[in-house]
């Protein structure tokens, strides 16, 4: 690792540690996702929900308890990490351009490209750590809940935990293009608008049946949002395509920051 990148990582890690976005979103991701996963499954199996709500929760009302907890966790996490990562990168890249702080990053011994790369690594690394923590906590809560229900936390639950973790990591990587959007628009709000637009577009793509190949639909479909058939339609090539989004977008962002002008 070059000295410049090491310095950039050190600085960006400190900036991210102090940021308000991180302080707010970390507990939401790490605590709320596991609680929602176990809570929604319990709600579905309680019989307390009737009408359209019950139909929405029907998939969670049956099947092994542990595997269901982890499936719900994957479905929530794949959207939550994309949104949190997108917001984080919108703030980290868009705000300094909007308020003029980016201008101070010119003429430094630490190149802007190294700073942009470090910023992507730090934010995606944070999102990945949140995914690991959320899945770990869900496994812990689920193990306790299955034991209380007299069920075993079986191999299918562990397989679900692995799938959920991979889906979370993929979703974190899918946030990186929004760093490029923030750089191009120089606006965190416009970037959030683009993020919401992509989420809406993903719904449309899934409705027309092309979701298995659309990277932004892949993590949640693979964890069962569209049912078992839709999950089975996501093949390894689609997963690799989704995984490629982060490195390609990171390369683009670094190039953008190297070529930045009129700041």
């Amino acid at each position: 690792m070059s000295g410049s990148l090491a310095t950039a990582l050190r600085v960006e890690a400190l900036l991210w540690r102090r940021s308000t976005v991180r302080r707010i979103s970390t507990p939401l991701l790490v605590a709320l996702v596991p609680v929602a996963s176990v809570g929604m499954t319990a709600l579905a199996r309680s019989g307390a929900v009737a009408g359209p709500g019950a139909a929405k929760l029907a998939d969670y009302a049956v099947g092994p308890l542990g595997a269901t907890h982890l499936a719900v966790c994957g479905q929530v996490l794949s959207v939550a990490l994309l949104m949190a990562g997108g917001f984080a990168l919108a703030a980290a890249f868009g705000q300094p351009l909007a308020d003029g702080r980016a201008g101070a990053l010119f003429g430094l011994a630490t190149p802007r490209g190294a700073l942009a790369l470090a910023r992507c690594v730090v934010v995606v690394g944070w999102a990945a750590a949140c995914a690991v923590a959320a899945v770990g906590l869900t496994v812990g809560l689920s193990a306790a809940a299955t034991a209380a229900a007299g069920e075993a936390f079986g191999p299918e639950a562990w397989e679900g935990a692995g799938r959920t973790l991979v889906a979370g990591l993929l979703a974190a990587g899918l946030a990186v293009p929004f760093a490029a959007v923030a750089t191009a628009t120089r606006s965190p709000l416009a970037t959030v608008g683009a993020l919401i637009g992509v989420v809406a577009l993903t719904q449309l793509v899934v409705v027309v049946g092309a979701g298995a190949w659309f990277p932004y639909a892949v993590p949640s479909l693979w964890t069962g949002t569209g049912g078992p058939d839709a999950a089975a339609a996501v093949n390894p090539a689609a997963l690799w395509l989704t995984a490629a989004v982060a490195p390609v977008a990171t390369t683009a962002v670094v190039h953008q920051w190297r070529r930045l002008t009129d700041v």
């Binding site: 310095t7 400190l14 900036l15 102090r18 940021s19 702080r101 101070a104 010119f106 630490t110």
Partner: peptide, 30 residues
């Protein structure tokens, strides 16, 4: 490494303390 400037918004992060900002600036200046 031998150049410094303040034109418009400076090399200061509002979330960092004064000491941290100076330390970060020193690191970024090499």
């Amino acid at each position: 490494r031998r150049f410094g400037h303040v034109v418009g918004t400076p090399l200061v992060s509002p979330d960092l303390t004064v000491a941290e900002n100076v330390r970060v600036a020193a690191l970024l200046h090499g």
